[in-house]
Simulated scan of single mutants.
Amino acid sequence: MFRKKYLLLGVTAVAAAGLLAWAFSPKPVPVETATIVNGRYEQAIEEDGRTRLKDRYTVSAPVAARVLRISLREGDRVAAGDTVAVLLPAMSAMVDARSNREATERHHAAKANVTRAAARVARAQLGAEEAQLELHRVEKLAREGFLSASRLDSARLALSGARREVDAARAERDAAGHDEAQAAAALLPANGAQGGKPLNVKSPVPGVVLKVPQASEGTVPAGTALLDVGDPARMEVIAELLTTDAVQAQPGRRAVVERWGGPPVEGRVRRVEPAAFTKVSALGIEEQRVKVIVDLDSPPPGWQAMGDGYRVTLRVITQSVDQALLAPVGALFPIGDGGTGVYVVQDGKAKLQPVELGGRNGNEAWVRGGLQAGQKVIVYPPPAVAEGKRVQARRP
């Protein structure tokens, strides 16, 4: 009886000691892990951009006119030579009572000038006839020797001058007639546009209507934009890069257009503009930026849903390596004098491992040495993790 009692007490003491040892023993640190894999490493310059058509045509009114209502709407397709707008002569300005009275008096004055000019023509013709008769008399007397040759020359010159006076009087009569017609036109009612000949404005290229700023009927001055036409199949992307990044984005570089609402679209840098400009960032910092233009290489069905002026994210690839050893950036931390290391999970414990990097981007790092594919590394190691510390991967 006493033997069983002592045996039970001994088992209880051993169990209590084991429970205490387990309770006070160091527990594994829960960590997040990731696997080292082989893959494609890319280092890129990332910046917001926007799409735009390569060729955009603004159809404008060539003259001041009254434009009829435009039936085309954004998205309608047009062919080269299609009529996109119809112009009519603009109506004359409205005339008030005072202006009408002034125009009437000017018309009366113009008619009087016509009468005066006609009277001057008649007077000039009489003078010419008188000079012609005088010349006949002088010629007869000169032949009989009663007058000198100089007197004959004077008569001939007088006739020539009289004829010039007739020509000048007739010209003044014509000018007075035109002035009278102009004054009479000012009195016509303001409905001259109803009988005017329409002018058809045509599309210069085939494409899609992008914008119709002047859809309603109205009177417009010369040069007013009526609508914009462009070909959505000819698209490009423009982004404003920092000048320090634009040095690496040389023409011919591969680029990827992302975050536009569809799959990534491949492209190539076509041009880096030669002149930079100053732009103030959202934080109030002055930055020197330059515009970079990218041509899209993917076929139109891949990005036909992308329109003009869409906001996108442009990635210009500056470095690309196939079959590179990739590690998450969150697993890296500085060690020693400028070195880089990671914690590798080995036999349930954390092991500090220095690594050699070939490059890094926002998500991944290219590891040239120190790791192998398939190894587990700790991502964002907590402060409790140290060399030889027991760790346990969190369950997803």
Rank of each mutant, 00 (worst) to 15 (best):
A183H: 13
E273W: 08
H136A: 12
L53S: 09
G341M: 05
A184W: 04
V166E: 09
R50W: 12
A181Q: 13
E130L: 15
A93M: 07
R394A: 09
R163K: 12
V201K: 10
E102S: 11
E102A: 11
Q182M: 12
E165N: 14
A246C: 05
K351T: 09
G161Y: 05
L283V: 08
A305R: 15
D347N: 15
H136R: 14
N363Y: 01
V201T: 10
Q319V: 01
A124K: 00
D231M: 08
A117T: 08
N361V: 00
E105G: 06
A16M: 09
W303A: 02
L72R: 14
I285S: 09
R66Y: 15
H107L: 09
V269A: 00
N38D: 04
G145V: 08
G161S: 07
L133H: 03
P28G: 13
Q132N: 10
E129A: 09
P198M: 01
N38L: 04
T83Y: 01
M306V: 15
A110N: 11
V329T: 05
V257S: 11
R66W: 15
L325Y: 03
T115D: 09
F2Y: 02
P274S: 02
A124V: 00
V290R: 04
P263E: 15
A90K: 13
R360W: 04
E387C: 06
L68S: 14
G230D: 04
R164I: 13
G359W: 01
W22H: 15
V316Y: 08
G388Y: 01
A350W: 07
L157G: 03
V208C: 07
L20F: 14
R101V: 10
R137F: 10
R268S: 04
R40M: 10
S25A: 15
K202W: 08
V229Y: 07
S60H: 13
V312C: 03
E273V: 03
V329R: 00
K140T: 15
R395F: 05
G177L: 05
T12N: 00
